[in-house]
Design a protein around this nucleic acid. Structure first.
Length: 561
DNA sequence: AGTCCTCACCGG
DNA sequence: AACTCCGGTGAGGACT
């Protein structure tokens, strides 16, 4: 009996499938079966299903109550392998991979369509390109070879396996949905925005604030039109470059207060108001479509519903079912801990080797300043900050944590020089757009600027384009390696809760929510902490670095912080 | 009528 | 204190 099987959807509801050996080659004949779901359900001993696309197959299985242990997603792996080869942007479909193997014309990927509210199946399936099982096997065998050719084959195997696990988690979270109380959401909207007027215009509170703004300027002003606001300030003798909140806050003018209030509420109304509720919440659940690896750095995105931007005030609507709880868990200072692990900097690993607040430890041991200054300095180093307070402490960071700063500096230099960088597991940055100075053909590039002498490590004169590129690659290695860790953490958590009634219902970069019966809550919290530590060891090997979570067992998401 | 862009906010 | 990294979203407006 084989541990690993390849599976392809066939005519109607059917499937074709075959057992595979450790080398990825078939160890038996191809079976043709009339019912894909039954083909999988009847083989619980299979440890890993190799298929073209999780989004194509797994929602069907979940709808029939069939859960699988592990999978290998060929089209996701193709994307990661292409990236590793510096060929991001080439079509990643199985059909395209096959065409490349056979030196045939490569079909472009089908366009991704927008999410449809309320849909339960995944949507990265605009028009599935049928690929026969034999062709899939050919692509799979080639992918196994390409893993071996990677810079770190073991890590690359881990990366594709982890992201395939992420695909399973994403489909399961979409199926489960985030518990959402529409009645509570409506109460919040009414409190903040007031009554809705018939006809669909602004609700009462927004209309009142618009009146206050107009009254303050002495003429009719539309607060939702930045150009109108800038003009109104100019007529009042105040020059503003934009109407961003932080800029308006500097001004002394009676319109400022209602303007800022208007912006805040306008945002809630348009992005998370009544129409959002109607579009995205069904039967007490919000079902966003998660896209693992949706950003180049490996962070997830969601398609529709803005699930990764739920405003804090709206979180009151996320309420556990009767007798159930939400276990809300936040990884503590994930990015500096990840930097410690990937750079192997002794000082930073030492500070990251405790469960306590990392920034406090940093300010106690290495800084004369307070916690907030320590935090700014460290984050500034990771983000490539170009101005502000963080810079003053950069020299000290360099002395105390030479390997950590060198790690991100090296990544920045690679970016400035147009080279690619990789996360710890091997996810690779995209090439610079145009990878030269040929953007905006025919227009000369901006004049070269002098580097600021206190921060620059490059001897040359990098253009501002190149320096932006350097900030991107600097951040990429840390944020991306953190995403590597998060994938492994999710995979471990999924395994740990497999025998429980608990369901993963939300994931956002460094935060998870598990919905579970009250009596399972403590066990779930323990499982989350264990998953974090396990992910740290699997991803980065044995290091002193700890990956703690702050967990809260609550009935309402808003009570978690 | 549809597409693309800018703005400004939300989250990490 | 300043606005650096990664995204999604909607509205309005300019364009085809």
């Amino acid at each position: 009996m084989s541990d690993r099987w390849a599976l392809a959807a066939a005519e109607g509801d059917g499937a074709r499938l075959v057992p595979l050996g450790p080398d990825g080659l078939p160890t038996g004949p191809v079976r043709a079966e009339p019912d894909l779901v039954e083909a999988v359900r009847s083989r619980p001993e299979v440890g890993r299903w190799v298929w073209r696309s999780t989004a194509e197959i797994y929602p069907r299985l979940l709808a029939a109550g069939v859960r699988v242990e592990r999978c290998y997603d060929i089209e996701d792996a193709e994307l990661l392998l292409l990236g590793h080869q510096g060929r991001l942007g080439e079509p990643r479909s199985a059909a395209a991979a096959l065409a490349r193997l056979r030196n045939a014309p490569v079909p472009p990927d089908p366009p991704q369509r927008a999410a449809e509210p309320g849909s339960q199946s995944s949507l990265f399936e605009p028009q599935p390109v049928p690929v026969p099982l034999e062709a899939l096997l050919e692509v799979y065998a080639d992918q196994l070879r390409r893993h071996e050719a990677a810079e770190h084959p073991g890590r690359m195997r881990l990366l594709t396996a982890a992201e395939s696990a992420g695909m399973l988690v994403a489909a399961e979270m979409n199926r489960a949905g985030l518990p959402w109380r529409a009645d509570v959401h409506r109460d919040v909207l009414h409190e903040l925005l007031g009554e809705r007027y018939p006809g669909g215009g602004e609700p009462r509170r927004l209309a009142e604030l618009a009146e206050e703004v107009s009254a303050a300027f002495g003429r009719r002003v539309r607060p939702d039109l930045p150009a109108d606001v800038v003009k109104a300030f100019a007529q009042a003798g105040i020059k503003v470059r934009s109407t961003r909140r932080w800029e308006l806050e500097e001004l002394d003018h009676p319109a400022v207060k209602p303007l800022i209030q208007y912006k805040k509420l306008y945002r809630i109304w348009t992005a998370h108001g009544w129409s959002w509720l109607k579009d995205w919440v069904r039967d007490g659940r919000f079902r966003p479509e998660y896209l693992p690896g949706g950003t180049v750095s490996g962070r997830w995105t969601t398609n529709g519903g803005g699930a990764l931007q739920i405003p804090k005030v709206i979180r009151r609507a996320v309420v556990a079912d009767e007798g159930w709880r939400l276990v809300v868990a936040d990884a503590d200072q994930m990015e500096p801990r990840v930097l410690a692990a990937i750079s192997r900097d002794r000082g930073l690993m030492e500070i990251s080797g405790h469960d306590g607040d990392l920034y406090s430890a940093l300010s106690d041991r290495a800084f004369s300043g307070d916690r907030d200054h320590a935090k700014l300095a460290l984050l500034g180093a990771i983000y490539g900050q170009t101005s502000g307070d963080g810079l003053k402490n950069l020299a000290m960071l360099r002395r105390r944590f030479p390997l950590a700063v060198a790690y991100v500096d090296d990544a920045a230099r690679a970016g400035e020089e147009g080279r690619l960088v990789r996360t710890w597991l091997g996810r690779t940055s995209p090439r610079a757009v145009g990878s030269g100075d040929d953007e905006e053909a025919g227009i000369p590039q901006e004049s070269e600027e002098l580097p600021s002498p206190d921060t620059e490590f490059t001897p040359g004169y990098a253009s501002s384009n190149a320096r932006a590129r350097g900030r991107f690659t600097r951040n990429f290695v840390v944020q991306g390696s953190a995403a590597d860790w998060a994938l492994l953490m999710l995979a471990a958590l999924r395994q740990a809760t497999a025998g429980m009634r608990a369901e993963l219902v939300f994931f956002q970069h460094d935060e998870v929510i598990v919905h579970c019966p009250a009596e399972e809550a403590e066990e779930v919290a323990k499982a989350i902490r264990a998953a974090g530590e396990l992910a740290g060891r699997i991803a980065f090997g044995e290091t002193p670095v700890r990956f703690p979570f702050t967990t809260a067992v609550v009935q309402c998401y808003a009570d978690a912080k």
